[in-house]
C-alpha cells in the first residue's frame, strides 16, 4: 500500500495530466485506485452520451457552451471533436456535389446524424456533465498537489484523527 509522503509534487504537471486524461492527475499523486475509478466513470459517462447522440453530440459550431464542458474530458473530448470535424467535412463535400441545393440540416437528416430531442438533451447532458465532473477532479488534484500530498492517507493519521474525534465526543 502506498504511504502518504510530504514530498514535493509539481502542481502544474498534476493539473496538466488531470486535464489531458481524467484520473491521471490522481495517479500521478499516488492515488492509483481513485484515478482508475475516475477515469472509468468519466469515460463511460462521456461515451454513453456519444452513443446516445452520435457524432454531433460534440458540436463546436452550434453548441459552444456544451462544447466547452465536453472538452474538459481531455482526450475523450478531443477524439469526439475529431470525429465531429470529419463528419462536418463529409457533409460539406456532399453539399458541394449536391446539385439540388439542399441545406446542411437536410444532409444531416439524410445521413441520419441529425440530433433531435430527447436524445439531444440526454446525450449533451451526459457528455457535458462528464467534463464538469472532471473539472471537480482537476480542482481536487490542484489542492492536493499544492498541499504536497502524495499517496493515500496513512493508517496512523486516520487512527489519530479518529482518536481526536472520540476525545471531542467524550468531552462534550
Amino acid at each position: 500500500m502506498t504511504k502518504r509522503k510530504e514530498t514535493s509534487v509539481l502542481p502544474a504537471l498534476a493539473v496538466l495530466l488531470a486535464c489531458a486524461i481524467p484520473g491521471a492527475g490522481h495517479i500521478y499523486l499516488g492515488r492509483v485506485g481513485r484515478g482508475l475509478i475516475i477515469f472509468l466513470t468519466i469515460s463511460a459517462l462521456f461515451w454513453s452520451g456519444m452513443a446516445i447522440g452520435g457524432v454531433l453530440t460534440v458540436d463546436s459550431q452550434q453548441e459552444k457552451w456544451w462544447f466547452a464542458a465536453q472538452m474538459l474530458t481531455g482526450a475523450n473530448g478531443l477524439v469526439a471533436w475529431q470525429l465531429e470535424k470529419r463528419a462536418y467535412q463529409d457533409l460539406q463535400q456532399d453539399l458541394q456535389k449536391d446539385a439540388q441545393g439542399r441545406s446542411l440540416e437536410d444532409r444531416m437528416v439524410d445521413k441520419k446524424i441529425a440530433l433531435v430531442a430527447p436524445a439531444e438533451t440526454v446525450a449533451r447532458a451526459y457528455s457535458g456533465v462528464a467534463g464538469l465532473i472532471n473539472l471537480m477532479c482537476i480542482f481536487d488534484v490542484l489542492m492536493l498537489s499544492l498541499m504536497g500530498v502524495r499517496g493515500e492517507p496513512s493508517p496512523e493519521k486516520k487512527r489519530a484523527k479518529r482518536r481526536s474525534e472520540k476525545d471531542v465526543e467524550t468531552k462534550s
Binding site: 466513470t41 452513443a51 446516445i52 456533465v129 471537480m136
Partner: peptide, 30 residues
C-alpha cells in the same frame, strides 16, 4: 458513435439515475 440511437424509454427522467450515479461515484472517490 456516429448515428444517434432512438430512446425507447417512456420517460427520459429515468436517464437521470446513471447521471446521478456517475456524479456521486466521482464525488465520493475524491
Amino acid at each position: 458513435f456516429y448515428n444517434p440511437i432512438t430512446l425507447s424509454f417512456e420517460s427520459e427522467l429515468w436517464l437521470l439515475l446513471p447521471l446521478c450515479a456517475a456524479v456521486g461515484l466521482v464525488y465520493k472517490t475524491i
